[in-house]
C-alpha cells in the first residue's frame, strides 16, 4: 500500500492463512477494498521455501501479478 501511495503500481501477495490479517491492516490503513493475490498450500505460510518451490510459485504467480498490475484481473 505504501508503494501505491508513493505512486508505484504494486500488488501484495499473501498466504491464504494470513488473508484475515492482511485485510485488517488494509482496513486500518484506510484501504478496506485493497486487493491481494493469495498463495495457498502446498506453499507453507512462512516463506522458507526451497529454490524449486520458489521457482514453481513464481511461474504460477508472475502472470497473476502482471494481470493485476495491468488491470486484466
Amino acid at each position: 500500500m505504501e508503494l501505491e501511495w508513493a505512486g508505484v503500481p504494486s500488488i501484495a501477495i499473501v498466504h491464504e492463512e494470513m488473508r484475515g490479517s492482511a485485510q485488517a491492516i488494509a482496513r486500518v490503513s484506510g484501504c478496506p477494498d485493497y486487493e491481494f493475490l493469495t498463495v495457498d498450500y502446498p506453499w507453507v505460510p512462512i516463506a522458507i521455501w526451497s529454490k524449486e518451490e520458489c521457482l514453481d510459485l513464481a511461474e504460477i504467480m508472475a502472470p497473476k501479478v502482471l494481470d493485476a498490475l495491468t488491470g486484466q484481473s
Binding site: E17, M18, V44, P45, I46, I48
Partner: peptide, 9 residues
C-alpha cells in the same frame, strides 16, 4: 494433542 493456529511451522 492437536492445537494452535496457522502460520508457524
Amino acid at each position: 494433542v492437536a492445537a494452535g493456529g496457522a502460520g508457524m511451522g
